[in-house]
Simulated assay, not measured.
Amino acid sequence: MKALWHDLRDHLRTDFRVDLYVATALWATLLLSVNFYFDLEDAYIDSFQGKPIWSVLYFLLYATAYYVSVWLWTYFHQRLDIWRNRAFWLRSLVALICYSIYAGFYAHNTWSLELFDGQIYLFAYHCLHNLQSILTIVLPLFLFYKFVEPYLSQSRPGNFYGMAPKRKGLVLYALLLALMIPLITWASFQPDFLQSYPTYRDTNANEFFNVPEWVTALIYELCYGWDFVPTELLFRGFLVIGMSRILGPGAVLPMVVWYCSIHFGRPLGEAISSLFGGYLLGVLALSTRSIWGGLLIHIGIAWGMEIAAFLQNASR
């Protein structure tokens, strides 16, 4: 834990200002209040599901959350020159466009209907929904890293936005994950938990392919776990490790507010906790120059909840 506190202390020494953090907290509170009072995402934005404007509305939401947060940081740190930086605009717009397309992507619905004549629609829909990020996030960011990054920075970062594993911090991340096990175990005994987990639902896919159900369940869980990879790659990799070339430690705070906004369709408590979790993971990604810690925690918790729910159902 000493490494955690050391990294947090060093980051706060260079970035913390009471006025900045209070202003950012108020901005995040305003966004949360508007969303959950008017049910902005679920009742309005998602009413356009499957239409091109769906991604546009997500772009407006995410751009508002991110750019106002960046403005607050540049204002209080007296770095308004950032707004004249072409690389900042290019990086931020690429990130916003990629994630907005990802959030509003619905082609997998058609693919699932056409795959095997729709006979495994439900199974295919959930798997393809989790895998579409390969096209919408991972591939565009890789092309940016390969062809645009050298032009902007005269050189590429040492690895693909933190995708290379680093030993630093892994013990700490493993400890944080271990601390979640008792909480996950307790939650698995709650009725509300078992209404939501496991996210895998019995389908006819195993009968269609004539395989045991554990095979299709494993395929689903692998796809489910993959969906956390592009999230970490974009938010902690591209927006923190990559954007730190321009914003330095200031890359963390705007990322956190945008990261919170992608949880607007989730329960309020989860959206609020994403602020704290996003900040911690952002600081550690900046320190370790790796996103593997965030992947370990995110995927570990997700699969831990799935396993706990499977065990609870098996014991009944």
Rank of each mutant, 00 (worst) to 15 (best):
K2R: 11
A3E: 13
L4C: 11
L4Y: 11
L4W: 10
W5K: 08
L8H: 02
D10Q: 13
L12E: 06
R13V: 09
F16S: 06
D19N: 08
Y21H: 15
V22S: 04
A23L: 10
T24K: 06
A25G: 14
A25S: 15
W27P: 01
L30R: 07
Y37P: 07
E41R: 13
F48S: 10
G50Y: 00
P52H: 01
W54H: 15
S55V: 01
V56D: 14
L57K: 03
F59S: 13
V68P: 04
V70G: 01
I82C: 06
I82M: 06
W83P: 00
R84L: 14
N85V: 02
S92M: 13
A95F: 12
I97N: 03
C98H: 04
I101D: 00
Y102S: 12
F105I: 09
F105G: 06
W111D: 11
L113E: 12
E114H: 09
E114Y: 11
L115N: 02
G118I: 02
Q119V: 09
I120V: 12
Y121S: 02
F123Y: 14
Y125F: 15
C127G: 04
N130E: 09
L131C: 08
I137N: 05
L139Q: 03
L139F: 07
L139G: 03
F142Q: 03
F142A: 12
F147E: 09
L152M: 05
R156G: 04
Y161H: 12
P165H: 03
L170V: 14
L177F: 13
L177K: 03
I181W: 14
P182T: 02
T185C: 08
S188D: 02
F189D: 14
Q190D: 15
P191K: 01
D192W: 10
L194V: 08
D202S: 11
N210H: 14
P212E: 06
T216C: 09
L218Y: 10
Y220T: 01
E221T: 13
C223D: 07
Y224D: 11
G225W: 03
D227H: 12
L234N: 00
R236M: 02
M243D: 06
M243C: 03
S244F: 06
M255H: 02
V256M: 01
V257S: 04
V257W: 05
C260I: 09
G265H: 09
E270C: 07
S273L: 15
G278I: 04
Y279P: 05
L281K: 03
G282A: 02
V283K: 00
L284C: 04
S287H: 15
S290E: 01
I291A: 07
G293C: 05
G293F: 09
G294V: 01
H298A: 12
A302P: 03
M305R: 15
M305Y: 08
E306N: 03
A308T: 00
N313E: 08
S315H: 12
